[in-house]
Design a protein around this nucleic acid. Structure first.
Lengths: 205, 205
DNA sequence: CATAATTATGAGCAAATATTCAGGTCTTGC
DNA sequence: GCAAGACCTGAATATTTGCTCATAATTATG
């Protein structure tokens, strides 16, 4: 008989190496399948097929479809925060264009692996549950960090630093998502240069 | 027996006024339902219910669910192109910041009606068929238009106008989509001002 | 080698949802 | 006012898909 409340934890903690391998296969396959078909059309059976395992095995390690996407999302968010913290620690204080460049380069690099998946994550993943909170928290962290940076930097001259910070963070994230995953992907070097130029000129006034 | 290939055309061309009215009701209801629940959870039955008609009537005018979304997307794209053409006709030549302002204001206005729907359209609609082509065609038109504008304007000083044009068009579209439909929506006036400032300073160098 | 523990399998269940169709109701044209 | 066509209805059907569970295969243990 089934329990009243939905299981959140994975069914099983892998004890053997082959189990951990299966888990990884599932995540890798899911990244491909979600990126290619989107969330709704990325069925668990398709994921299992692509991973070369049976559907039953998939449900031994993930309680449901959402959990798979959740794991992928959490990994990406953690990557993003790590980049921001590294920039803040190593690049400040310094010329504003250099700060932007390192920030932007980090963002670009973290999107080269599975661009279509990451775009999908932003768009269709957080419909539900506590992942929403994690995403919102991270967004606010980034906005606040950028605002501090603008407020404290001598070269910066914008009237409304709150709106500006939000605009900058949103722009960097969305534009990279879009253009890296585009049908005709841009040259990432040029994209980096132009994005740095745009933001630098903007905040210098 | 069912035909081998999927029907693309609507079942029926409306001949009476009530029929055309029903078609409109369906589209209006679909815009609400898709915007509120997303594509997957925006079921055809829900749309029919919201439109105050029976599910059978819905399938008299649209061969399937995709077709409804397609119609909504096409309408939005047509709106977008109309704005761009109007700006090009009425605002050129003129101060570059003014051109940007009219362009941006138009884009913002066209997203105030059903922001959540429009964001969803961008994200989940073009998965299939010939809509992809229409979207791509429009994207290229906009990019080309913006590049002409940059190339021909005396105030503009950017090295790589091709990348710059793409960056600008993408930025305007995505940022507006995102921030207008955000959990804490921005003040659209401020957004307009900052966006204009950013782009103007960028291209002036 | 024997027993237990872990992992893998995949046909099939149940729920959700898109779509059909046989039979009604309303409009139009004469 | 009366056919004929246009339009509408909604219970029934077809399809999709997340997920389970009884069973088998593999690996660890001693």
């Amino acid at each position: 008989m089934s329990s009243d409340q939905r299981r959140i934890q994975p069914r099983k903690q892998p004890r053997q190496v082959r189990a951990e391998l299966t888990r990884q296969r599932i995540l890798t396959a899911a990244a491909h399948v979600f990126g290619e078909h989107g969330y709704a059309a990325g069925t668990t059976n398709r994921i299992a097929e692509r991973a070369g395992i049976s559907i039953g095995s998939l449900y031994q390690y993930f309680p449901n479809k959402d959990a798979i996407l959740g794991e992928l999302l959490v990994r990406h968010l953690d990557d993003g925060m790590a980049i921001a913290e590294r920039v803040q620690r190593e690049q400040l204080p310094g010329p504003i264009d250099q700060v932007f460049r390192v920030f932007i380069r980090g963002a670009i690099e973290s999107h080269l692996g599975e661009p279509r998946l990451l775009r999908m994550l932003r768009e269709q993943a957080p419909q539900t549950n506590e992942l929403l909170e994690k995403v919102e928290r991270m967004k606010r962290s980034l906005d606040a960090y950028m605002r501090e940076l603008l407020d404290g930097h001598p070269e910066v001259r914008v009237a409304d630093t709150e709106t500006a910070a939000r605009l900058i963070v949103t722009t960097v994230e969305l534009v990279i998502h879009q253009l890296v995953a585009d049908h005709e992907p841009v040259d990432v070097g040029r994209l980096e240069d132009e994005l740095v130029a745009m933001l630098t000129r903007y905040v210098k006034g």
